[in-house]
Design a protein around this nucleic acid. Structure first.
Lengths: 202, 202
DNA sequence: CCGTATCTTAACCAAATAGTTAAACCACCT
DNA sequence: AGGTGGTTTAACTATTTGGTTAAGATACGG
């Protein structure tokens, strides 16, 4: 049946994603993926011939989930400050729910940059023209301080993603329990947005 | 000879560090480490019994290099704004010269948080009291806007480290050549410092 | 120069792990 | 009922990889 077939395939993909994100590409074991999907290793190879092919799919999936999300938020017609507030809010929600995703992507993209370049960019070149133009215009009109859109984008993305990557370090350095950390991330929804806006406000 | 002995050991450690940082813990091969050190695999095991022991050493080394550096900058007696400017400058220099180090540490620390907690913190608990108190006082005296020192620290570290982790993505998204990217990082020395200061300035 | 300790290597071993095969199972169609 | 195509499994193979061994260099004190 179609539903049954898709469900098994989906099951494997979910299991594979979980294991790859937790253990990394090299650390993931086909056996563990099979176990978590509740199937046998041979079946795994029946569906997805090799570890390489499977991992390529997962990488695509991972990037395909995160990239359009960033685009969607940054390429709307909203006012710049509203956009920043919303981007921060939405992005923090997404990343805190998928905290291993950025680590996985960052790893893969650094281990194998040309793969990322070829496969992802070929499909949908991430064009941030609207956001960049919006920033440039706001600068030209003197509505915000002179700031390069590239720098602003890096600052935003950094502050949204990195705290999750460095979570264990920050927890130790700042003496935060898990609950503390979560609270801290919660207040970032407002703090980071205001931090950015104050930094660029005239 | 002592110099010869040390030199071989150092040679192995350098090779091991290079391979571990490039390939990650699970992805690193003892054979490749031996090859890069120009020696044989058996000799590798002669010096450092197992992959686990070797990797533990490299992890210690890596964290031991980066942590004191952060402390040293943040725990001086300087004026807050000067400290921020200097931290940004020094940290950017260090990270751009060791761009794989943060990725390695972030990976290791997420895969195995309790290891980090036990080994590193036991030796030298990273106390950021001086920096945090400095920020709190500046807030109390109304010299800067009300900002939590934890949030400020996260923002700083994020903007300093993450661009290097996300380098390939940023290069694609912003259309930057290697030279462009380097130039961009160069201007961050001033831009990020000013960005932070403007964000917290009254 | 000889003996001894340190260093170095090729060849080997065992465990882990990706991948294959061939047979059984099962749902569905006629 | 029986055939058909997709699905599932146990058992097997091949390869990779961490780790060992035993023999051979090398340096050095006596």
């Amino acid at each position: 049946m179609d539903t049954q077939k898709l469900s098994t395939e989906e099951l494997i993909l979910e299991a594979a994603q979980a294991v790859f994100l937790e253990k990394g590409l090299a650390g993931a074991r086909m056996q563990e993926i099979a176990d978590r999907a509740g199937i046998n290793k041979a079946l795994l190879h029946y569906y997805f011939r090799s570890k390489e092919k499977l991992s390529a799919l997962i990488i695509d999936r991972a990037i395909g989930v995160i990239l359009p999300r960033v685009m969607a938020i940054l390429e709307t017609d909203q006012d710049l400050f509203d956009k920043i507030r919303q981007a921060v809010d939405q992005y923090l929600t997404f990343v805190s729910r998928n905290s291993f995703l950025p680590l996985f992507i960052v790893n893969e993209v650094n281990r194998n940059p040309q793969f990322f370049f070829r496969n992802v960019v070929a499909h949908e070149k991430p064009h941030l023209d609207k956001f960049r133009r919006q920033v440039d215009e706001a600068v030209a009109q003197g509505r915000i301080r002179p700031v390069s859109s590239a720098q602003l984008l890096m600052n935003m993305m950094s502050m949204l993603i990195f705290p999750f990557l460095g979570k264990p370090v920050f927890q130790v350095a700042l003496g935060l329990s898990d609950a503390d950390f979560e609270r801290e991330m919660e207040s970032r929804r407002i703090e980071v947005a205001e931090f950015i806006i104050r930094a660029i406000q005239v």
